[in-house]
Amino acid sequence: MAYQPRLPKTNPNIGRQRPLQDLLLIGSALLALLFLLYWLLGLAIDKAINQLSPELEQQWFANFASKPEPSPQQAYLQQLTQDLQKCSTVPYPVNVHFIDKAIANAGVMPGGTMLLYQGLLEKLDSENALAFVLAHELAHLQHRDHLRGFGRALVLAVLTSTLTGSSNAGQVFLPATELGMAQHSQQREFAADATALSLLQCYYGHTGGAEVFFQSMLQQESSKLPSWFDSHPKLQLRLDALQQQRQQHGYPLAAVTPLPLFTAQ
C-alpha cells in the first residue's frame, strides 16, 4: 500500500451559497404569511369584541379597579367626565383616577377605569382643553380600543411563537410585528381624536381649546425620526386632522371656560 498525497479540487461539502436571495425569499414569504394571519385574526378579534357586551366586560374587570384617593381634582374630573359621557355611547359608569405624578399622560383600562396624571393637568390652560383629553379617553372606551390592543398583542405573541417554535427566530419578526402593532394603534388614535372632537362640540357647542394639549406637547417633541414604530402618530399630523375635521363639519370656535383653582390638596 502506498500513500498518494492528494487534495480534492472542489469542495462538495458546501452547498450552493445564495445568502442574500435566501434571506429575501424566505423572509418575505414568512412576512407575507404573518401579515395575512395577523390581518385575519385581527378581523376575528374585532368581531369577537363586538359580540362581547360592555356590561359583561364591566362584570369581568370591575373587581380589578381600586378606589381612587379623594381630592378636589378627583371630584372635579369625575364630574366633568360624567357630564361628557352623556354625549358618548359608553354605557357603564367611568371611574376617574387622579394620580399625583409629574407624568403628562392619561389612559384607560378594561372595566371603565380612566387614569389621569397631575403632569398632564399642568399643561392645560382651560376646562375645554382638559375636556378634550377626557373625551379622547372616553372615545377609546367607546371604540373599545383597550380590548382591541390587548387582543392583538396576544394574537401576535401566539402567532410568532407557534411559527418560530423554541428557537429565538421570533426576534427576526420583531420589527415587523412592532410595525403592525404601531400602525394599528396610530389608526385608533386618529379615530379617538375624531370622536373626542365631536364629543367636545356636543358638550360645549364649540370646539375651542381642543388642540391645547397637543400644542404644549409639540414644543417638547424633539424626535425627528419617522413615527412608523410609535404607538401614537406625530402631533402635527393629529393637529392637522383636528383642523380638517373642524372645517369639514363647520364646528365653531368660542371662548374657553377657565380651569378651577385647586388649592387644597
Partner: peptide, 23 residues
C-alpha cells in the same frame, strides 16, 4: 487488495424540516 491510500475524506450536511413537521 488495497493498492493506494489517499487519506481521510469526509462528507457533511445540515438539513432542517419545516415547522409543520416540527409541530
Amino acid at each position: 487488495n488495497i493498492i493506494d491510500c489517499f487519506g481521510v475524506v469526509s462528507g457533511s450536511t445540515v438539513r432542517a424540516k419545516h415547522v409543520g413537521r416540527d409541530i
